[in-house]
Amino acid sequence: MSAAIILVWSLTIAQILLGVAMAIAVFRMIVGPRAQDRVLALDAFYVAGMLMLVVLGIRTGSTLYFEVAVIIALLGCVSTIALAKFLMRGEVIE
């Protein structure tokens, strides 16, 4: 067992798990009985996607993915806050 084999296997499994997590989040986003469920699922999707990019960065050994992950983390936060604000102000008062 060399270091490369251990890493490749564990990273592949981790990527599969994170992919499944993203798929479940998308499912909840589509099914989600109410708007807040969909926003929550979108937030979880962002986090899982960001972690997927970090794992991809480890796999390719390039720090370039780190920058992408930072941007996704920031965008995910801002968009979720905007959507939550919209849920409070935009839809209920008609």
Partner: peptide, 26 residues
């Protein structure tokens, strides 16, 4: 090898925890 094992363990732990969390959504 020890670093590879440590990285592998942490990555898998993180992926499993994230998956459980999203599973909770379901």
């Amino acid at each position: 090898i020890w670093a590879a094992l440590l990285v592998a363990f942490l990555v898998l732990l993180g992926a499993v925890l994230t998956l459980i969390g999203v599973l909770g959504l379901l």
